[in-house]
Simulated scan of single mutants.
Amino acid sequence: MKETAIVYCENNFGTMDGKTANGLVRSSRKFEIVGVIDSTKAGMDAGNYLIGEKNGIPIFKDLNQALENIQNVPDQFIYGIAPSEAFLKKDERNLLLKAMEHGMNIVNPLHEFFTDDPEFIKHAEQFNITIHDVRKPARKKDMHLFSGRILNIDTPIVAVLGTDSAIGKRTTSVLLEDALLKRGFNVAFIATGQTGLIQGAKYGVAIDAIPSQFMTGEIENQIMKAYENDNPDIIIVEGQGALSHPAYISSCGIIRGSRPGAVIIQHAPKREHLGDFSYMEMPTVKSEIDLIENFSKAKVIAVTINHENMSDDELAKTISEYEEDIKLPTTDVLKFGCDKLIASIFDAFPNLNGKQEKALIK
């Protein structure tokens, strides 16, 4: 059985910085989400607010209201915001201490590690709860340098990259994984950020918390674990940030470490500036494709659209324009599913067609 969890996302649910809460409301293989805390949207259904479909996850104004309305105290309290500064505010700190006092274990996705905090450690011991610092890396002596082992495998590897952070790369990756699983494929998903790991990914590492010397090796190691343990038909690798993004280097490590044979690129056509960097204009899809293909040996095989601030007519027009101008299959997986992506993957890796036939026979 899944453990129950409440997700804190004050003033950020449905926004870029609320991506951890957003992702958990959409999909969680590890936890049963029983509520979201965001006073600005209290009383709403989280699914209805986020995707226009009710999912029975209520939004509460604060922890007190949540505990008054949830039948049992949740097993886990998840901090569901991903702020660029990645550190706690004072009122949030007090809230976490209160959650501990109620007996809830803490799931922390920040770069600020609670297990290094004397007050949090003392509270955890006093109230017999656990703290999970999702981004806390292994000790350096246990990290991996790039070994080249990945060069010897022939399993198709597809990376889902993008033109900005918090643009939908993980969502597209998870939906693509689900669509391939439904077709009978054995799929390995490699999470590279805190949200994918909290959602329950079997393999992965929070790449932005890894020293740069070990980035490629840690990604390679996760892929090799999946390859050796599960013998997958295909490996999907979640991207982070953007290769062109001036503030992040995660995409470099992901491309170098995963050695993808193909890339799907996610873009938000109506986003004018990089998230959290309002002084930087968004790259174009074409410029990002050129950069990725020059930086790696991978080919970009499809484009996926984040439809934020777009009408259905604008979305349909953009998809048609991209397919005509860029000559790549283009879709919005939240609106139209993953059929175009799977077709582009079959074109890039023809051997998968045979595995599709075997899967259908089964």
Rank of each mutant, 00 (worst) to 15 (best):
T155C: 12
T155E: 06
P156Q: 08
I157G: 01
I157F: 05
V158H: 02
V158E: 02
A159Q: 13
A159E: 12
V160C: 08
L161P: 01
L161V: 13
G162T: 05
D164H: 07
D164L: 08
S165D: 06
A166C: 15
A166Q: 10
A166L: 07
I167T: 11
I167H: 00
G168M: 00
K169R: 05
K169I: 04
R170D: 04
T172Q: 03
T172G: 02
S173E: 05
S173G: 09
V174T: 14
V174N: 01
V174K: 02
L175I: 09
L175D: 11
L175Y: 13
L175C: 02
L176Y: 06
L176K: 11
E177T: 13
E177Q: 14
L181E: 14
L181R: 15
L181S: 10
K182T: 07
K182C: 07
R183L: 14
R183H: 03
G184M: 08
G184W: 07
G184K: 03
F185A: 09
F185T: 10
N186A: 03
V187Q: 10
V187C: 04
A188E: 11
A188H: 10
F189N: 05
F189S: 12
I190R: 07
I190V: 12
A191K: 03
A191Q: 09
T192F: 03
Q194V: 04
Q194G: 07
I198L: 13
I198W: 10
I198E: 05
Q199D: 04
Q199T: 13
Q199G: 14
G200N: 12
K202Y: 02
K202W: 00
K202M: 09
Y203M: 07
G204H: 01
G204Y: 00
V205C: 06
A206F: 03
I207C: 09
A209C: 15
A209E: 15
A209W: 14
I210G: 04
I210P: 00
S212T: 10
S212M: 04
S212C: 04
F214W: 11
M215S: 11
M215D: 01
T216R: 13
E218N: 06
I219R: 08
I219C: 09
I219K: 02
N221S: 10
Q222I: 01
Q222A: 14
Q222P: 04
Q222M: 14
I223E: 02
I223G: 03
I223H: 05
I223F: 03
M224L: 13
M224F: 02
M224I: 15
K225P: 01
A226I: 05
A226T: 09
Y227K: 09
Y227I: 14
E228L: 15
N229M: 12
D230S: 15
N231T: 10
P232T: 14
P232C: 15
I234E: 07
I234L: 12
I234F: 07
I235T: 06
I236V: 15
I236F: 11
I236Y: 14
V237D: 12
E238G: 08
E238P: 04
G239S: 11
Q240I: 06
Q240C: 07
Q240G: 07
G241Q: 01
A242E: 06
A242Y: 08
L243F: 12
S244H: 12
H245C: 04
H245K: 13
